[in-house]
Design a protein around this nucleic acid. Structure first.
Ligand SMILES: [Mn+2]
Ligand SMILES: [Mn+2]
Ligand SMILES: [Zn+2]
Ligand SMILES: [Zn+2]
Lengths: 151, 151
DNA sequence: CAACTTATTGAGAATAATCAGCAATAGGTG
DNA sequence: CACCTATTGCTGATTATTCTCAATAAGTTG
């Protein structure tokens, strides 16, 4: 949950014997410049990169997303659509959580400082190294409460 | 997030034109009698039912898990293993959250009253009908911090 | 900067979880 | 009991994600 630059990403990768590649650099950049509230799936990222003129194979995309999530650079979100979404993982003033309608998947972001504190404290108490901490609220939105569509 | 009995399950199903079947009743019972801290996948439930002498088809299991999660009877958990897990959804004194090691998937449950309150308040403020509210902490456990296994 | 080691990439095949279609069955209601 | 239709259990799709492997290219060393 730090702010990354190409340089700090390279430093952290090299420290573990890994490498900074153009692909990894571009993917980080894409996420850093995404409008607030955007959540990308692997497929979304694939298309974005293609349109951007920097095509990257799906294999590499999946590998990079997993890598960056495990480094704490990206957050892996399960937004109830059957596939994962990702967003940049930022600290305190930008850190947020998600309220999701399980029927239409409409998602609202909200902030709450106490939760990150709780997460940090809990991880620390158990000796875990914190990567991400997210409150997920599953609910039914006002529109879907009225709708007659079953399930 | 209520305590269900076969009768109250039937009432809630019938109210929506749905039916209480032996399969649904048994699945509810299984979850209610699970030892604290147990999380079942669809496959786990399938096997449990088979061993129990009450075999139910995988299709029905998937359908029932989804149904009960959307009713708020079960919680759908994404415990970083590539497939969903489920547990009974209970109110205040039993309500808990999960601290997950992204490397070995070891999961620790912990309680925190404030989070459920935050979730309830947030859902209410947006007019959403709350089903479940879970804090997920992704982290690396002490053992895996020491391990040399990459990723 | 040239040689060297090995992490990484891209293409395609393989896997695994979950869903869909459909005929047969069985709840709920009167 | 008779009727309507939700539900079940097969089976056969989907679809997201991972694996395999040869080719490429970071990072390091002399
Ligand atoms: Mn978000
Ligand atoms: Mn649990
Ligand atoms: Zn909705
Ligand atoms: Zn671990």
């Amino acid at each position: 949950m730090t702010i990354y630059t190409a340089a700090s990403l390279k430093a952290e990768l090299n420290e573990k014997g890994w490498r900074l590649t153009p692909q990894r650099e571009i993917i980080l950049e894409i996420f850093q410049n995404l409008p607030k509230g955007t959540h990308l799936s692997a497929e979304d990222l694939y298309n974005t990169l293609e349109e951007d003129g920097h095509p990257i194979s799906l294999s590499t995309i999946y590998r990079t997303l997993k890598l960056m999530a495990r480094m704490g650079i990206l957050r892996e979100l399960e937004l109830a659509e059957g596939h994962k979404h990702y967003e940049i993982n930022q600290p305190a003033p930008y850190h947020h959580h998600h309220l999701i309608c399980v029927k239409c998947n409409k998602t609202i972001e909200f902030k709450n400082d106490g939760i990150l504190k709780t997460g940090t404290k809990t991880a620390q108490k158990e000796g875990y190294h914190l990567l991400d901490c997210q409150l997920i609220i599953h609910a039914v939105c006002p529109t879907c409460q009225r709708s007659l569509i079953p399930l």
